[in-house]
């Protein structure tokens, strides 16, 4: 006990340093966003001499970020909801139910995990174009769901494996159908995993540039990260404006994460008492 306590203090110091190192880039970006281009070229690291918000408004106004923000929100929430729904359904079936071909189906999902987007980018663009889905929101949502579903299925399957079969048996004895078990037992019990995989998926979708670029060629269908990326031209060296765009994209994610991580902590606590 006491030895553990001692080690706890020993690791606390490097962990605090690491925490500082993880916050630094964000502070650096915020600092740069407040500078003028001239100040930035002369000295990148010095503290800004004034809080200049005009870079932020330049970044916001130059490429219609408001519109892109809404696009991102729509696409990301839809994708995450669908991912969690399909992922938990498949995870439940693959972990707790016995049926012919389940291993093959699971391996099929896993294989999807090993397909990088670049590998299928061109054929997929053609399939989407043939299906009339290119440059539409459902098209991009579908691409995101397909991209991150293998990961989600894998995580949910692993997680649901840890739920004791007795719980499910008990629910079945109470007269629940398979769907009832899914809805009344698996979904609520899966909350911790659903939350963390949801956060990760939301982040992947939110930060994605490549898929959104390929699937959404029209300017007004763009997502926020694409808008931020397009702030940099071929050689553009207006780093403060770009840094402002980065902040615009990063801050909502941070806020959502900081809010949700309490939920995760609660979920973790709930999970460990139930387990």
């Amino acid at each position: 006990m006491s030895r553990i306590r001692l080690s706890r203090w020993l690791v606390a110091i490097p962990m605090a340093l690491l925490a500082l190192a993880t916050v630094y880039p964000l502070l650096f970006t915020a600092n740069v966003a407040m500078k003028t281009r001239r100040d930035y070229i002369l000295d990148r690291f010095s503290l800004t001499d004034a809080l200049r918000w005009e870079n932020i408004s330049t970044a916001w106004n130059s490429v219609g970020m408001g519109r892109y923000f809404v696009n991102s929100l729509l696409v990301v929430t839809s994708s995450v909801v669908l991912l969690l729904l399909f992922g938990s359904m498949a995870g439940f079936a693959l972990s707790q139910l016995r049926f012919r071909g389940s291993t093959a189906l699971f391996l099929g999902c896993l294989a999807g995990l090993f397909v990088p987007f670049q590998v299928i980018m061109v054929p997929l663009a053609r399939i989407m174009a043939d299906g009339g889905l290119i440059d539409t929101y459902p098209g991009l949502i579908l691409v995101y769901v397909a991209q991150f579903l293998p990961f989600t299925v894998f995580l949910m399957t692993s997680y649901y494996k840890t739920i004791p079969p007795e719980i499910i048996d008990a629910a079945r004895i109470d007269g629940n159908s398979v769907y009832g078990v899914y809805r009344r037992i698996m979904l609520p019990l899966g909350t911790p995993a659903l939350l963390s995989v949801g956060i990760l998926n939301a982040l992947f979708c939110w930060n994605d540039v490549l898929m959104a670029l390929v699937m959404m060629p029209s300017a007004d269908h763009r997502t926020l990260m694409v808008g931020v990326t397009s702030l940099r031209g071929q050689y553009s060296d207006d780093i403060p404006t770009f840094a402002s765009g980065v902040l615009i994209a990063a801050v909502p994610v941070l806020v959502v994460y900081l809010f949700l991580q309490r939920q995760i902590a609660d979920g973790v606590a709930a999970g460990s008492t139930k387990g």
């Binding site: 061109v122 540039v209 670029l213 390929v214 029209s218 694409v226 990326t229 397009s230 940099r232 031209g233």
Partner: peptide, 15 residues
């Protein structure tokens, strides 16, 4: 439609 230059020719290739 302004594309990011980093991805320009790859996107064009896909198109």
């Amino acid at each position: 439609v302004a594309q990011p230059f980093d991805q320009y020719y790859t996107l064009l290739g896909a198109a």
